[in-house]
Design a protein around this nucleic acid. Structure first.
Lengths: 217, 217, 217, 217
DNA sequence: TATGAATGAGACTTCATTCAT
DNA sequence: TATGAATGAAGTCTCATTCAT
């Protein structure tokens, strides 16, 4: 079983973007600086300097500083998230998971890997959500309903087989994200996400989730 | 059993601060604006305007804009968190919890109430952690070790009685925070934390935690 | 008969404006630079430098560069023009003009003096009209209808006495402005308005207008 | 009697210019934009976009932005004005005007038609005169002396015949331009020059001028 | 203590112009 | 000839901070 190679999605997006090397450099540098110092805490002159580019070049392509942010987040929101979601979900359909442990372990590992690979975008996204909760509301709704429909169906098969507690899908997903987040969030915030032992974290998280979500006979 | 009245800690801090009414107004307004728009996204002139105060007054007491931030977060970090922690822990000591459910339900409700009451400070804190992960590192360490020592002792009694799984305290706390966070974080981010049904959320969270953390005979 | 002292209207407006000396200096300098080099051709840094003021000060009071323009033109449009118009028209009512020559000479001299005194504002206004014909349309309509009502009544008395040709007021005013403008416009554009011999210009213009507007017996 | 077809002078100049279609497009677009928004208010990138041309192309032929301005105004100043002037003056010489009315009517209509046809160039010219009164001084002198010599001679014949008041040519031309301008300027500024009823305007203007300039017996 | 005018560094952005392709 | 990415100087504007009143 192969983990989808989500790490390269940002780079792949760059390559397909028809942006020049300099403009790609602007995006890469902006991703790092926005994640490190926040959007407001990053100046366009610093972006230009670190990208080895004139300040005019920064604006030639992206028009405004917000344009850079959009260029970073839109592919992530419009393509990466749904794509990765679909990607993993189609794989899920094709696979036979005999027990909850195998299924949970797969999903947790997949999502955790994705989160680590895109931790910078996630960090930036969190900041934007704080700065502008309205703008993000629609995005959240879209994502949630998508996950409910797809992931929820997988869960239903386990409920039908009597090996998953019969709680609302929303509640189960809540614990999924909460438990996964309890490993990812601290690691990302401290900036040591790369040192996270994914295998161990996944098996621990899976163990706890399976306990908590197995029906009591 | 009385829930500690954490909602008023900020206000109480203000009253005890010997600040003039205008300077208290500056702090209140800053708390709201920093939480809404971020520290960098808030200008001192806007603080002054909303506080009904001149621009000079903002700096008279707090010296710098960072000084305002410190005046908001330091009481929260230095007093409020430990105080509330201690407060709740001393109460815990005095109480007899016969089963895990009663204990977890109490703790979760206490912490969730606290988080909701201080959601703005938490929001600001998250932003600062993103902007400056180093500065916060020490704080995290301090808090964690404190919780480990105090909360961990309570957990040990349950482990000894064989009604709590024998995992490291750190791991159990991780799931505590993760599950509690799965209710609080979305509510706070969306800005609808006040509409959260705390009773229902706590009993749900407790139910799941108890399932996941009860030893399998 | 005393010519109204229109030269000091701008200065008087400044004094009544509650602006600090520095901000008044910004306005004075802006008036000169906008008139000399055009609005677009004048930079705020040059305004600041010539006004002996920091660039921040320029924006402290007037918010934007357009704000400076508004601060220059609004008093001119909202107060000066109507005021001067009313001023001269009430005087006209009180005066007895036996013949067309005396009346025309008075009016022409009054308006020509006013135009020379406010030549810079007029220059700026012309530029703005070119840049933004829509915005000015309403202003033109207001002024025209005002002049028609007031000046037109004076003209009517001369028509009734049979010493003024019975053309529409609008047409007569057209020639008034055209002939007066034929003296003022070149002088202002060349920048030698101060060398204009007002007495001679007025008597010449009056002579021509009286010839052209006297009924042919 | 044929009115010289001045409307096409700009187009004719373009055709004879050996400029490529793209470069002609640059000039046409620049003429419109400079007239609408002013020279300083028009960016070369906007010219390029509206002309359907790359930014580099704009500079390939005209070197600088001022070069575009020169390419627009120089033919107008160096060729169009004198040419049209000469053109009309040679025609005038060949024609016999029995009375002032016929002569004035012809001249006014000719010049008014010319002004309307070249209103955009005139608008641009006015802006440039405001921005740079020195540069234009020489041009004005040239034009004025030319008109004085040619138009002045025609006027002299009428003075000799005793049907034109014996004022200095300069003064008569002043009223000519003033009265003609009183029709043209408002129409051009408001942007409704095309709706101007030239026939009616000319006969009105002529009527007034003839009254004002006919000797009193 | 409180005010708010003043500051100047620096932010974002525009734009005329150049040059490799 | 034509393109458009790149430039960097300059423009408008913001903002934390100071200080005389």
């Amino acid at each position: 079983m192969e983990i989808s190679n989500v790490e390269t999605l940002f780079d792949k997006t760059l390559q397909e973007s028809k942006l020049t090397a300099k403009q790609q450099s602007v995006l890469k540098v902006s991703l790092n600086l926005f994640a490190e110092k926040g959007f407001d805490g990053t100046s366009t002159s610093e972006i230009a300097k670190q990208a080895g580019v004139s300040e005019g070049t920064v604006f030639k392509q992206f028009k405004t500083k917000d344009g850079i942010l959009a260029a970073l987040l839109n592919p992530f929101l419009d393509q990466v998230v749904p794509m990765a979601a679909t990607e993993f979900l189609t794989e899920v359909k094709d696979l036979r998971f005999d027990d909850l442990t195998a299924f949970f372990n797969y999903v947790i590992k997949d999502r955790m890997t994705f989160a680590i690979a895109n931790q910078k975008q996630l960090k930036i996204l969190v900041q934007e959500i704080i700065r502008n909760s309205d703008m993000i509301q629609s995005f959240v709704d879209k994502i949630v309903s998508r996950i409910l429909n797809t992931f929820g169906k997988s869960l239903q098969t386990f409920k039908d087989r009597g090996i998953l507690v019969d709680w609302p899908t929303e509640r189960i997903i809540r614990y999924f994200l909460g438990v996964a987040g309890s490993y990812i969030v601290p690691a990302v915030l401290i900036g040591k996400a790369d040192q996270l032992d994914i295998e161990k974290s996944c098996s621990e998280a899976t163990e706890f989730l399976v306990r908590g979500l197995t029906p009591i006979k």
